[in-house]
Computed example of a mutant assay.
Amino acid sequence: MNKVYHLSSCNTCQKILKELNLPASFETQDIKEEEITKEQLEEMEALAGSYEALFSRRARLYRERELNKKELSEADYKELILDHYTFLKRPVILNNDEIFIGNSKKTVAAAKAAVHG
């Protein structure tokens, strides 16, 4: 599967999508407009190895809900991501059986190399 989960209102996601110059075979999903399904999240987790790897601690709600003061389980991470799109670390790029999570330069470079092989 070739897909990108992103947020269209996020300047960083926009910049990364432009830099990646994805082929037409890639589907994009704005996670604010089209919520992530349980099945989609489970597919991402299978490639990432954990829900924690997909979880963004930078989300404003992370501190507002005082989650930084709690010990979160894998089930908690899954429920939080399904509950609110901002908890997904963005963008998430699926390229066949590879997953690239987040916006670090290293991750973006690896995704670009994988996509354009």
Rank of each mutant, 00 (worst) to 15 (best):
L94T: 08
D97I: 01
I93D: 02
R65G: 10
D97Q: 12
R58E: 13
K89E: 01
R63D: 11
K105H: 13
Y77W: 08
Y85T: 13
Y62H: 11
A110D: 07
I99L: 04
S73Y: 01
L61G: 12
K69E: 09
E71S: 05
R63W: 11
E66R: 06
Y85G: 14
N103H: 13
L88F: 06
R58S: 08
A59F: 00
K70E: 13
H84V: 12
K78G: 11
E74P: 04
R58V: 00
E64M: 14
E79T: 15
I81F: 02
I93L: 11
D83I: 07
L72E: 08
E79P: 14
N96T: 09
H84S: 13
Y85N: 11
T107V: 05
D97K: 08
D76T: 11
V92I: 12
K78P: 00
A75G: 07
L72W: 07
V92Y: 13
N68Q: 06
F100S: 01
N95E: 10
L82H: 00
K69H: 15
F87V: 10
I101P: 07
K89R: 11
E66P: 13
E79M: 09
E71Q: 12
K78E: 08
L72Y: 14
A109V: 04
R63H: 15
L72N: 00
A75P: 01
F100C: 08
F100P: 01
R65N: 01
E71C: 10
K69R: 02
D76R: 06
N68S: 15
E79W: 12
T86P: 04
R65Q: 08
N96I: 04
L61H: 15
R65K: 04
L72I: 06
I101Q: 01
I99D: 03
D83V: 04
G102L: 06
E66L: 06
R90I: 00
L88D: 02
R90H: 15
A59N: 04
E98G: 08
D76S: 09
K69M: 06
N103T: 05
T86K: 14
A109T: 01
A59M: 05
A109F: 00
H84W: 09
K89I: 02
K78D: 06
K78R: 15
N95Y: 15
A75T: 11
Y85S: 03
A109E: 07
V92R: 00
E98F: 12
N103D: 15
Y62C: 13
F87G: 13
I101M: 07
L67V: 02
R90S: 01
I101G: 02
R63F: 11
R63V: 07
K105R: 11
R90Q: 10
L61C: 08
